[in-house]
Design a protein around this nucleic acid. Structure first.
Lengths: 224, 224
DNA sequence: ATTATCTATAGATCTATAGATAATGC
DNA sequence: ATTATCTATAGATCTATAGATAATGC
C-alpha cells in the first residue's frame, strides 16, 4: 500500500517518510492559516509568534522548527496570498475562458470574481499593504499582478470593440477599467470610506458597476 | 506689558505663568509633530515612545509628563488630524462659499481640496485606519465626518439642479459623489493599486474627475 | 535514526515610573 | 514654589534558542 500511488494523493511513491511529511505539512498549514487570520485581523507586526502558536494549537518551538524566524513565516503567508491572486488573475484574463461572453459578461465576471476573492481571503489587502511598506519585493510582485490584471481586462474589452460605441475605444476602455478598479477599491475599503452603495448587496453592486461600464463605452442598451 | 492683551496672542492676560505655558505648548507641538510623522510612516503600534522622544528632540520622561500614556498621545495626534478634517469639511460644504460656482466649479474645488488635504497631512488615512481598528470612537467620528462631507457635496450639486440634464437628478447626484469618492480613494491609495492616471499630475486628475461628473449628470458641454 | 513537538528561558525591546536637576515666575 | 525636563531603571512583552520528549519509519 505504501508503494501504490493513490489517485487523490499528491505525494508520489518515491517520497520517503511520507507519514512525517504529511504530519509536517498539516502543521505548516495550520500555522499558516492561524497566522493569516491573525495578521488580517490584528496586523502583522502587532501579532506575536506566541499568538500564532496558541491560535494554531501548536507550541512556539514547533513554529520555529518549520519557519526559521518571524520574517520567514510572514513571507510564507504572503506567498500563499499572492499565489492565490496569481491564479485568479490568470483565469480572469484568459481570453479562451470568456469567448462566449460580451462586454457586459466580461465586466460582470471581473467584478464578481474580485468580490469573491475578498470574501475567500478577508484581510488580503491589509496584510499586503502592511508587508509592502517594509518589503519591496512583495510590493513589486503585487504591483505586477495588478497591472497584468488591468491590462488583461482592457484587452478583453478591446477584443470586443465592435460593441463599443465610443469614438475612442482604446482610451475609453482604459478609463473604464480604472473606474471599475476605483469602485472595487472603494467598496472593499468601505469599512473606512462609507459609500451610498455600501449597504447594497454584492449583486446590486455588480449590476451597478456593469451599467457604469455600459454607459462609458456607450454599448447598445439592454443586451444579453 | 504682561497686562496688555496683544492682538496676535491667543493667551489672555488672566493666564498666569505664560512663559511656562508657551514652553509647554511648544514641546507638546514638537512631540505631536514627530509622533504624527512617525505614525504615518511606520505605523502607530510599531512606533515606540522612545522613537517619538528621539525624533522630537525630547526625552521619554518629558513625553510622559505631557501625556499620561501612549494611548493618550495617540489620541491627541488623531484628534488633531480629525480637527483638521472637520475644518476642511465645514468649508467644503458651506453653501455661501460656493455661490458663484457652477457644478463644474464645485466638483473642481472638492477634488482639489481633497488632494491638498492629503498633501498637507500625508499618512492621514493610514493613521486613522490603524487607530480605527482598535478604537470605535475614532472610527465613528471619522465616519460621521465622511458622511457629512458626502451629503454636503450632494446638496451643493442639487442646489444647481437646473444645470443637470439627467432625468433623475437626486439619484445621479448621489451616484456622482460616490464615484468621485471612489476615484479619490483609488488615487490616494495608488501606492497600492496602480491606476492609469497614477502618473498624471494632480491638475490632469482634477480635470478628468470634473469631466466624469459632467458626463454623469449630463451637464451642458463646455461651460465656464 | 530521524523528524516533529514541547517546555523553559535567555536576551532584546518597549512602556511607564521614580527621583534628581533645571528653568520660570511669584 | 511650581512646572518642565532629564537620567536611570523596573516590569512586561516578544523573538528566538537550547535541550528534553514523543512520534515515525528504516
Amino acid at each position: 500500500m505504501t508503494h501504490m500511488a493513490q489517485a487523490s494523493d499528491r505525494s508520489a511513491t518515491r517520497w520517503e517518510r511520507r507519514g512525517q511529511q504529511v504530519r509536517s505539512h498539516r502543521t505548516q498549514d495550520a500555522i499558516l492559516d492561524a497566522a493569516e487570520e491573525l495578521f488580517a485581523r490584528r496586523g502583522v507586526e502587532t501579532t506575536a509568534v506566541t499568538d500564532v502558536a496558541a491560535a494554531s494549537g501548536r507550541s512556539i518551538g514547533s513554529i520555529y522548527h518549520h519557519f526559521t524566524n518571524k520574517e520567514t513565516l510572514v513571507a510564507a503567508v504572503v506567498d500563499r496570498l499572492l499565489d492565490d491572486l496569481e491564479t485568479s488573475v490568470a483565469t480572469a484574463i484568459d481570453p479562451s475562458r470568456w469567448q462566449a461572453q460580451d462586454i457586459r459578461g466580461v465586466a460582470r465576471a471581473y467584478v464578481g470574481n474580485s468580490l469573491r476573492l475578498d470574501e475567500r481571503r478577508p484581510g488580503f489587502k491589509r496584510i499586503i499593504v502592511e508587508v509592502s511598506l517594509v518589503d519591496a519585493a512583495t510590493r513589486e510582485r503585487y504591483h505586477r499582478l495588478r497591472r497584468r490584471l488591468d491590462d488583461g481586462i482592457t484587452a478583453l474589452l478591446l477584443e470586443r470593440r465592435t460593441e463599443i460605441g465610443h469614438p475612442e475605444p482604446e482610451l475609453a476602455a482604459r478609463f473604464c477599467v480604472d473606474q471599475l478598479t476605483a469602485m472595487l477599491t472603494a467598496r472593499l475599503d468601505s469599512e473606512m470610506t462609507p459609500t451610498q452603495l455600501e449597504a447594497a448587496p454584492d449583486e446590486a453592486f455588480v449590476r451597478h458597476a456593469v451599467e457604469s461600464v455600459a454607459g462609458h463605452l456607450r454599448l447598445a442598451s439592454a443586451g444579453s
